[in-house]
Design a protein around this nucleic acid. Sequence first.
RNA 1: GGUCCCGUAGCUCAGCUGGAUAGAGCGUUUGCCUCCUAAGCAAAUGGUCGGGUGUUCGAAUCACCUCGGGAUCGCCA
Length: 674
Amino acid sequence: MISRPYDEIKQLIESYLEKEFSMKSDLIWSKPPSIELGDISFPLFNIAKELKIKPIELGEKIISEISFPKIIEKVNLQGGFLNLAFNRSIFVTQVLQTILEQTKYGQNSSLNSERIIVEHTSSNPTGPLHIGNFRGSVLGDVLGRLFSFLGAAVNVRYYVNDLGRQIAPLVIGYFLLKETKFEIEEKGDLWLGKVYASMYTFLEIQQLKKKLIVLGWKLQSSASLYSLDDSDLKTIPDFLNILPVENKEKDNTHKWFSKLARIQSSLIERIPDVYEKLNKLTSSRIENLESMTNQYVKNYQEGKDKSIVEKFREVTKMALDGHVETLNLFEIYHDDFDWESDVAWSGEVQTMLTELEDKKYLRHDGKARLLRNDTIAEELGYKTKYSINYEIPDTIIINSEGITLYPCRDIVYHLHKLEKFNASLCYNVIAKMQQLPQLSVRLALYGLNRIDTADKVHHFDYEYVSLIGRKMAGREFDYVTPDELFVLAQKEIKIIIEERDYSEEEQQKIIKKVAASSIKYHILKMDPQKSVAFDVKKAVDPNENSGSFLQYSYARALSILNRSSKHGINIQKILESTEKEKLIIEKQAEWELVKLMEELPSILVKAAKFLRPDSVANFSYSLASAFHKFYDACPVLKAENPKLVKSRVMIVLSITKCLESLFEVMGIETLEKM
RNA sequence: GGUCCCGUAGCUCAGCUGGAUAGAGCGUUUGCCUCCUAAGCAAAUGGUCGGGUGUUCGAAUCACCUCGGGAUCGCCA
């Protein structure tokens, strides 16, 4: 039998209100400010107002007319608050029994009827995962785990963006180096990040120089198109100064130039080997990187040139393998990987575009096409439904070269993925930056008369992660990766564990698991809506408010259980006997702990309802903290009398079950020893 | 300029479907391992909840205004 004292009391009062006043209510309970007042509190003001009586009168009526069950020990009225105190013995007996009866405490079937897609990470295959997109991985992972824990069928997908324009220079650079039999001595995706940063910079420098030439600047015959040499660094600013064009234009060009000069020198400093080698190769072997890039993208989008397809796939695969390796370190797994190129080659993008065109939902501007977001939203009731009363800007979906852009494929992809899984809901865990494109996808689905599908799609957005004092920039090879955090965290943990007596093998296992949980937890606990300045030192510090604190509480609990037999205590026997015998609570620390354990199921339901995976982390922290306090204040195996031993062993057994559930939801591994 | 998000202790952040005296961690100061793992516990320190007005019996929480920070607004994703 599942018994939840907090809910029971709430329902008891609610049903009284319904019977007595035919009033349907969803009562809110809170915790009294001080423990002397009780354990649970109901403010009566609102109900009293609705019934047009005084709160105190209502309270008195409730107290005199409801016959409270034995679990309620004390009832008192305090200025409009109905405060109830539990009989601790009955409460703890009931709650712990419930916890221990369930296979997984807190698991329920509230989402049984849902089929939910969670798409997350979907990072560009142009480098390693960094903590910015990794934030989405963690949030998405926990969201999926949470839904699944609450009974939903969950499908976790990764959308591989292998078609973006930005990959082409990477592919070109990759094969330039490959032909030279360049040795790769690091993780593939990290190495690709270096190639990408270099090639992209060459491309941009070429574009800058091209623009300058149009303005009348003279390129020296010996100079490279792809780098800014000493003479460029001098002549370009001089040239811009005397240029007879508008100030704004001049300014922008100047800014662009300075930015590229900065990036170039920072890349030379940070990744000299890859950068310089590629610079030479590109200068000597590639006549026009820009046109080659366009050619590559176009070819790959069409998917007909087999050698190009193979090249793009090889590079993308290498990056993706790196991402998966990183994710797996943190217990993050995907069910399916969908390649953007497959969507493009299916031919459905054209069908989709034609339909939108026929319905006049596309605006023309030369060869470019824009999705008329506002018109669609207005005509098809999106604005009314979601009470939007401002103008939604159009989004460009085909550029003036006639190349289809990312949203085109994403629209088709959405039709596919929801259909394939027969989903009732779909959460795209994607950075807040993508708000407008995400909205466009839904609006396009409206335009295609797939309103039911569109309404199932939700953008679970999360804010930007920066580094203290600077932004992360893939194009500048400037970011912090979860991989390097993992290494740093392990070092810190090693310092602590070396003081303990573990074998080398055990040490390694513990270090890895603690490092993973600490980093994951550190990212998870932050409100997704808050942009954060990431502090590497704090993220890897085991003494900070972190995952190791949680794992430690579990290890401590297990340590007690494992030692019980040495103290002549038989856990199995205790478990069997409790049904008849009441448990007791003596100290405040144990009482607080048991009350928190009672709350676990409702915390999970709330986290899923309000889409707050971070709240699971924060609750876990409170629970672990309460257990550490209990651990310190209440000896278990050496408790004063057998009755107390029994009760406390039950508490310890229960906390392990609570933590196991929470760890499962957060994708954190349990450790028996640490 | 439009839209979205954020502003709580020296720092990093919880709390926000309105509830009583605003909570952690770090930092600083001080205790606790002959006692189940000190990756822990206890105590001290620290706050005009950015500001204003309103709604309400009651506002960190809701509405409006305002200030500060960030993101985004046709050819990158």
